[in-house]
């Protein structure tokens, strides 16, 4: 049985962050499992799940990782991952794409529409880009929906929200090509 730990870290971007991080976990006998790392303007942000040998404990891991993080100038948190949640029934995967002129509340309004219907957000990305002098906000989020009735209710909410806050928004099922 391997143990799982979650690391989140952020700091000024520079070459070598991933290398140093991967090296330190490799030397501790850990595997990098699910991860997401990206540039946020001038910073680099890390979300990482690592699996470690069963005899590895949080203190040892933290002690080993801390000097690497300090050297890289990253602030971080490390915690032992709770046991896996019980298997849930399959849900319907959908993606919502929203874009429009930047103004406060876009993420909040659409996230609330989802959570009010018990819809879980599994991935969310936002970008603010300069569109020929206009600040353009784009939001993409993947959601899991219980059933078609809730899909229809969410579609209705998305449709009325996009008119209310004057953005473009489309909800589409995630397409899977079975080959």
């Amino acid at each position: 049985m391997r143990k799982f730990f979650e690391l989140s870290a952020v700091g000024q971007d520079r070459p070598g962050i991933v290398t140093a991080l991967a090296k330190s976990f490799f030397e501790l006998g850990c595997n990098l499992e699910d991860s997401s790392m990206t540039q946020l303007k001038g910073d680099f942000a890390i979300l990482l799940l690592v699996s470690a040998p069963a005899d590895q404990d949080w203190e040892t891991l933290k002690k080993a990782v801390t000097p690497v993080m300090n050297e890289l100038g990253l602030s971080f948190t490390l915690r032992e991952s709770p046991p896996a949640a019980p298997q849930r029934p399959p849900k319907l995967p959908y993606t919502l794409v929203v874009y429009g002129v930047d103004h406060p509340g876009i993420v909040y309004r659409f996230a609330k529409a989802a959570s009010d219907l018990g819809i879980n957000i599994t991935d969310l990305r936002t970008h603010v880009t300069d569109n020929n002098g206009v600040q353009l906000y784009s939001l993409t989020l993947d959601v899991e929906i219980d059933n078609f009735k809730t899909v229809q209710a969410f579609e209705k909410e998305v449709d009325s929200l996009k008119k209310e806050i004057q953005v473009e928004a489309t909800l589409n099922p995630v397409e899977t090509d079975e080959l």
Binding site: V97, T140, E168, E175
Partner: peptide, 15 residues
């Protein structure tokens, strides 16, 4: 119809 209207996953938009 603009190309952003055709995105089918949260990971399909890039700066």
């Amino acid at each position: 119809i603009l190309f952003l209207d055709r995105i089918r996953s949260s990971k399909d938009l890039f700066e």
